[in-house]
Amino acid sequence: MANILQAIHTIISNDIPDVVDFYRSNNKINAVGDALELFIKDIFANTLNEIDKVRKQEAYERVFSYTGNANNPPDLMLKLGDAIEVKKLKSESAQIALNSSYPTAKLYSSSQMITKACRECEQWDEKDLLYAIGCVNRHQLSSLWLVYGDCYAASPEIYHNIKTKVIAGINHSTGVEFSPTKELGRVNRVDPLGITSLRIRGMWHVEHPQKVFEYLNVSTNRKNSKFRLFTLMYEKKYLSCPLEDREKLESIDNSSLQIKKVKISFPDNPVKRIAARLITYQI
């Protein structure tokens, strides 16, 4: 079963490509975001160097139970493993646009945001959610954050309560004709002819983990690095990975790789700190 530690080992064992040019030449893709998502697929399937399209597709089928679309989370799901949401940015100072989805600690099969195909791709109720946040500058992947949602996002009710209050405030507006919707609101018959409607949508944003976890001193020597990888997970998640994969990663003799025990703020209560692992790789 593919997992995060195997993906990190794949990155360390291979050159980091100019992702856009690399995938444009091999797959004729045009979008930078598509190239980053293909890169994430390849590090988990260990197919960065696989040029045979049939064998690559067979590897994808072995590793992934679901690959998503632009409108519904997640982008990828590992068989019996994590769900993965890929986000592409041009700058590490930029906020991450989540659109209509608020930050998520876990992915649940009961979520209204996912598709039927995602819900039925395998037997599952809950999956750990991994945010893969890549900074692509001039076609080069300069940094990649692999951070688990439970390190990053609060409990669902915190976001849902805010959404509920906003919806209640909108619906209490007078002199406006509302209709049922899954969004924040929908106003019908805006103009005298009654032919125009207004959709009111939520657009969620979250700070880049580079800023959120600045207290871990993750920016060390960043100006001298061509590529930087940061992986953050709770200690219990790290220890849940197969011993063979942990030992394989820990045995790498490379000064560019560091595996640290750290403590991070609990998203629901920042006063409380949780044991975690920070894995960094800078070249």
Rank of each mutant, 00 (worst) to 15 (best):
H172M: 09
E207W: 02
L130D: 00
P180K: 05
A168Y: 10
V136D: 03
P209E: 04
Y152A: 01
S256K: 12
V212Y: 05
L243F: 03
L146N: 04
I133R: 04
K261M: 05
E157I: 15
S219T: 08
E207N: 09
K236V: 12
V262P: 07
C151I: 06
V218Q: 07
T164V: 12
C151W: 01
C241H: 08
S225F: 01
E235D: 14
T196G: 05
S143A: 06
M233V: 06
I264D: 03
K211T: 11
A132F: 09
E207Y: 08
I259Y: 03
Y131V: 01
Y215I: 08
F230H: 01
Y148I: 04
Y159A: 06
A153I: 06
Q258I: 09
Y131S: 01
R228T: 10
P242E: 11
N161F: 14
N188S: 12
H205A: 07
I167A: 12
A132W: 02
S179G: 05
V212Q: 08
H160I: 15
A154T: 02
R222P: 00
K260T: 04
L144T: 01
E207T: 09
I195T: 15
K223M: 11
K260C: 07
Y148A: 00
L243R: 13
L130V: 04
F178G: 07
L257E: 05
K260I: 06
L193M: 13
S256G: 01
Y159L: 02
K163Y: 09
G169M: 08
E207D: 12
H139S: 15
D191K: 14
D253N: 14
V262L: 05
S219K: 09
